[in-house]
Computed example of a mutant assay.
Amino acid sequence: MRIGVAAEPASGHPDAAGRGFVSIPVPPPLPRTPRPAPASLVNAISELQSGFQGKAGIAVRAVDDGWTVEAGGASCCRSNRSASCGSQ
């Protein structure tokens, strides 16, 4: 895969003189293996939710690492499946 950047405006343009084309080789993306959520975060989220007096759902997602930590989400969001309470 190559990414090219045209550094030359349309011909006849006053800025066209002395400019060229830059092409940089780019390696293909590597497949990502999801990592588990940090155990300390899992424990902290669970403890925080269990100490709440009422209905509460907490979720934290690491988009780059591919993990989600949730506590109380199933009971909190059973009737309301919004983006913040998704089933992922």
Score class of each variant (00 low, 15 high):
residue 17 A to I: 10
residue 79 S to Q: 10
residue 7 A to G: 11
residue 71 A to W: 07
residue 78 R to T: 14
residue 59 A to S: 12
residue 11 S to I: 11
residue 37 A to E: 01
residue 65 D to M: 02
residue 11 S to F: 15
residue 62 A to F: 02
residue 71 A to E: 14
residue 72 G to M: 15
residue 67 W to P: 12
residue 34 P to V: 02
residue 48 L to P: 03
residue 60 V to Y: 02
residue 24 I to S: 12
residue 47 E to H: 08
residue 26 V to W: 09
residue 49 Q to R: 09
residue 30 L to M: 11
residue 58 I to A: 12
residue 50 S to M: 09
residue 35 R to F: 01
residue 77 C to V: 06
residue 78 R to Q: 12
residue 15 D to F: 01
residue 61 R to G: 03
residue 27 P to I: 11
residue 9 P to D: 09
residue 72 G to I: 13
residue 49 Q to N: 07
residue 25 P to K: 04
residue 42 V to I: 13
residue 44 A to W: 09
residue 13 H to M: 05
residue 41 L to R: 11
residue 20 G to P: 11
residue 17 A to Q: 11
residue 25 P to W: 01
residue 63 V to A: 04
residue 74 A to N: 13
residue 74 A to D: 12
residue 57 G to A: 14
residue 78 R to H: 12
residue 47 E to R: 14
residue 72 G to C: 10
residue 17 A to E: 09
residue 52 F to Y: 13
residue 28 P to C: 10
residue 65 D to K: 05
residue 42 V to S: 05
residue 46 S to A: 08
residue 33 T to H: 03
residue 19 R to V: 05
residue 25 P to I: 00
residue 50 S to I: 11
residue 7 A to F: 01
residue 64 D to P: 12
residue 10 A to N: 08
residue 5 V to K: 03
residue 60 V to F: 10
residue 73 G to V: 13
residue 51 G to C: 06
residue 33 T to A: 06
residue 56 A to Y: 00
residue 41 L to H: 05
residue 25 P to H: 09
